[in-house]
Design a binder for these strands. Sequence first.
DNA 1: TTGAAAGCGCTAACAG
DNA 2: CTGTTAGCGCTTTCAA
Lengths: 299, 299
Amino acid sequence: VAAVNTAVEQLGYRRNRVAQALRARSTGLVGIVAPQVSNPFFAALIEALDRELRDEDLELILADSRASVEEEARRIQILVDHNVDALFLIPTDHHLSAPALRFAQRSGPVVQIDQQVDGVESDYVGVDNTLGMRAILSHVVEVGARRVIFVSGSTGSRRREAFETEVRKVKGLVASPTLIGTFSVDFGQEAVAQLLRRRRLPDAIICGADIIALGVLRGLSDRHIDVPSQVKVTGFDGILFAEFCEPPITTASQPVEAIAGEAVDLLRARLSGDVSPPHRHEIAPVLKVRRSSRAIEAA
Amino acid sequence: VAAVNTAVEQLGYRRNRVAQALRARSTGLVGIVAPQVSNPFFAALIEALDRELRDEDLELILADSRASVEEEARRIQILVDHNVDALFLIPTDHHLSAPALRFAQRSGPVVQIDQQVDGVESDYVGVDNTLGMRAILSHVVEVGARRVIFVSGSTGSRRREAFETEVRKVKGLVASPTLIGTFSVDFGQEAVAQLLRRRRLPDAIICGADIIALGVLRGLSDRHIDVPSQVKVTGFDGILFAEFCEPPITTASQPVEAIAGEAVDLLRARLSGDVSPPHRHEIAPVLKVRRSSRAIEAA
DNA sequence: TTGAAAGCGCTAACAG
DNA sequence: CTGTTAGCGCTTTCAA
C-alpha cells in the first residue's frame, strides 16, 4: 500500500486542492487589498508578505483597491466569496473603510497593515507614526528649519495627527496649514504650485510619503528652487527611489520585512485559533538622513 | 420561488465559489509568476493586469519567483495545484525556464509576458525589443556617441540580442563587450565600477532596464562623472522613477496598459476555447528622450 | 415547469 | 489495521 502510494505520487499524482478546500473549509489562500500596487512601498510590502506566506503554504490573492472605498469594498467581497482563509488589508480611508473592514472580519481573520481604520477593533501592524514624525521634526529643527508644512495623501490620517501633535512639542517650529491630496508624484508637484501661490516658502516640506516627496523635489527643481539650501524636503516610507533621486531624500524608513513578518505571525496565530483581543503592533521606523535636509554650512 | 430567491440572496446569501469550482472545474483564479514584484515595471504590469482581470471576474494569485528558476518552478507547481484557470508567466531565464513553462502548459493556458523562453511554443505579449534598441541606438549616435556598451540583467536575452544585432547596423557605433549581472540598482552601480577598471568610459551606457540605469547614474555621480556631458546613459521599461531622477533617464517606454490588455485578451480567447497556434504579440515601445542622453551644445 | 439525484475529489468517521 | 461511506455546496441531468 505504501509502495502504491509512493508509486502513484511519483507518477505525478497531486491531490486536488479545490476538493480539499471544500471538504476542509480552508483554501490556503490569503487575500491582500492594497490601494495601489505600483506604489513601491506597497509593492515591497507585498513582496515581503509573499515571501513570508510561502513558508506557511499560503498563497496571496492580490486586489488593488485603487484608493477607492467602493472598489475596496467590492474587492473584499470577492475575496471573501473565494473563501480566503484570511485577509490583509491596507485600508484606503481611515474612516470610510470601516464598513468593509467590519464585513471582512465577519468571515475570517483580518490584519490591517500600514493604515488603521478608526473605531474598529482589529489586528494591526504598521510603523509608529508618532516616533517617525518626532524623529523627522527634531531633525529638521536641528538643521535650522522653523516654518514647516505637512503635505500628504488623504489617508495618512494617523501620520497627519502625529505631525500635528508632534510639531507642537518641538520648540521653535511653526506649522502652516497642511496640504492634503493623493499619494502620488503628481500631487507632490501640484503641492509645490499651491505653496508658491502663498507668500513665501516654508523652511521644510514634510511629506507623508516618499512618492509625494519625489514630486515635490521635481516641482521645486522646475522652478529652480534649490534643495536643501532654499528649502528642505523629507519623505516617509523609505522606498528605494528616495535614495536614488537628486538630492536623495531624508525619510522615515519603514522596516518592511519586520512588518510583513509580524503580520504573518499574527495571521498564523489567528488561523490556529488564537482569540485574544486585537493586537496593535507599532514598529519603529528608521530615520535616514540624506541630502534633501542637509544643514547649510555657511550661513 | 423567484421571490424566495430574491429574498434569500438579499439576506446575504452568496454561493460558495469553492464548491462551484469543484463542480465546474474552474476556479476563477489566474496565477502570475514574476521575478520581482518590487521592480516598478513588474509592479505596474501587475497592477494593470489586475485591473483588466477584474472585468473578467478573475482574480490574480501572485507568486514572486525571486529571479530563481527553482523557485519559479515551485511556485508554478503550487499555482497549478490550486487549479488556476490560467497562468501569466514572466520567465526568469530565457532558457532554464523552459521545463517549468512546459509543465505549466500541460495544465492550462499560459501567456508569457515581457520575456520569452526559447524554443517553447507559447502565447507571448511583450515589447518589440528590436524596435526599442534600434530607437535607442539611433538616438545615441545622433547625439554624438560612438563607443557604446550594453549593461543588463541575465534574462534580457532577447533585448541583448536586439542590442547586438542593431548596434552593427548603425553606422559609427562600436560596442564594447556586454556587462551582464542582475536587474537591480546595485548591479548598475557595480557595472560602473567594472567599467572604470577598463581604460576609458564609453560614450554611452545602454542599460537593459531602468533600475539598472538608476544604479549607473548613482555610480557615475559618486565618481563625479557628469551625465550627459561625459557619458550618456539610457534605460529601458519606462518606469515612473526614470523620469524623476537626476538627470531624468532616456528610455524605451513599455506601454504597460496595452501589454496587459493584450495579455488578458489572449487569455480570454484561450479560456473560451481558442486553440489556434500561439500568438506572439510584440508591441512597439515609445522612446522618451530625456536629459541623460542630451547632446552637448558647445563641443 | 419543477424537483430529485448524481457526482466533482477529498477526508473524517465509522464498520469490519 | 484496512476498507467503506457520507457529505462538503454546487450544477447538470434526467424524471415527474
